[in-house]
Amino acid sequence: MTLAVVTGANSGIGQQIATGLAGRGLDVVLVARDRGRLDAARRHIAGLAPGIDVRVEAVDLADLDETRDLAGRLAALDPSIVVSNAAVIAPLDDRTPAGLHRSLATNHLAPYLLLRTLAERPSPRPRRFVVVGGSPGGLRRVPVDLDDLNAETGRGLGWPPSVRPFAAYGRTKNMNAMFVYGLARRLDGTATTVNGAHPGIISGGRLNRHDRGTLRVFGSMLGRFAPGTETGADTPLWLATAPEADGVSGRFYVRRRAVPTAAHTTDPDRVERLWRESARLVGLTS
């Protein structure tokens, strides 16, 4: 039986993706921090897909030690599909015990560590990695500050202060695209592919639970008109399973169509510098 892994799978888009994978006959590992929500998601998915093995991994992806241990356990299982979906918009003063901004650790460093660890373990079967990113158009104005990955200076994050966590989040979503390109280059010629996907602005998730002030009002207004999680899960799920995506790697998709991302995300020197800095932060060689 083919095994799939979905992070951020206890609610929202992640749970919808996991449900879709189980409905296609894949065993699924659900990864998220909250054990109670994970168990509820497992029961829900198992009820919809009898006979499918649905497992849970209660891991705080902002904790790189926990993520490293998770990567080791998953590598032993050799999953064929991994969807990196977990993300958070964290206040700028929300720091992990290691001193990392929670958005940076959860949204970028965790998938970097997890997918790179899996990619470096040889597999006899084709594998698909999918990284859920952000809007290529909307993120053109928030290039990654390679001198301040950890958002310690607040430089360039905008005004009023309540929107700065969203700008920092946007930078991590640009990091996702850059990571896809860097990893795809290293996987060229192998049977493992990696692509990015923007799910769109959707309602029904918990991404905005820390929003305050202007950002909270803005998010509430958008949520009134946004489609639900099934729409948001469509493109990542398609990339993970569709025959049309066989052998396709190093691209970014919106509504199942490959689209360009900003020049600052594709510049080879910037992509490689982010790779090196990320390796240093997670304790790997570049």
Rank of each mutant, 00 (worst) to 15 (best):
W159L: 13
G12H: 04
G72S: 04
D53H: 12
I52K: 04
R102P: 04
Y181H: 14
K173V: 08
P260K: 15
E66M: 07
V144A: 09
V56W: 03
G133Q: 08
A119G: 04
L281Y: 02
Y253W: 11
P136E: 14
T190R: 10
W159A: 15
V180Q: 08
L77I: 07
P124H: 14
I52T: 14
D39R: 15
A242T: 11
V88P: 01
A258K: 05
T153I: 05
H44T: 15
R128K: 12
A245M: 12
R68T: 01
V131Q: 05
D63V: 11
G23D: 07
G134T: 13
L113Y: 01
L26E: 02
T153L: 09
G154K: 09
V248N: 11
E57I: 00
L104S: 11
R73Y: 00
D188C: 12
V144Y: 01
L21R: 05
E277C: 11
A119Q: 10
I17Y: 03
T235R: 01
N150I: 09
G204E: 03
V5E: 00
E66G: 15
G25R: 01
P91L: 13
G20Q: 11
R43I: 09
A58N: 08
R55W: 02
H210F: 10
D39L: 15
L61N: 08
G189P: 08
T214P: 00
V131R: 04
D148A: 08
W275R: 06
P243L: 12
R257E: 15
R141V: 14
L237H: 03
I201Y: 02
V31I: 07
F252Q: 11
R128V: 05
G205C: 08
L274W: 03
V56L: 12
R140H: 09
G72E: 02
H44C: 13
D60W: 01
L109C: 09
L118I: 07
Q15V: 10
P79E: 10
V144C: 07
G12T: 11
A184I: 08
V59R: 00
R125P: 00
A9S: 13
W275P: 00
R212F: 00
G8N: 06
I81M: 06
N150F: 01
V144L: 14
E277H: 11
E120Q: 13
V217K: 12
R33V: 08
G200K: 01
E272S: 13
G47E: 07
R251L: 12
H210R: 13
S203H: 10
F129D: 06
D188G: 15
A110Y: 02
R128H: 08
A4Q: 05
R257G: 12
P161E: 15
M178R: 09
Q16S: 15
L222A: 15
V259Y: 03
A32L: 06
Q15H: 10
G170N: 13
R155S: 14
A86Q: 06
Q15L: 10
R42S: 09
A262Y: 01
V83L: 03
G51I: 00
K173P: 00
Q16C: 09
G182S: 08
R155T: 14
A58G: 06
S203Y: 04
Y253R: 05
I52P: 04
A49V: 04
R257F: 01
L21N: 01
V248R: 14
T241V: 13
V28G: 01
P50A: 13
P91S: 15
R216Q: 12
S135F: 02
D60K: 06
R251Y: 02
L77V: 09
R251D: 12
R43E: 15
G137L: 13
G200S: 07
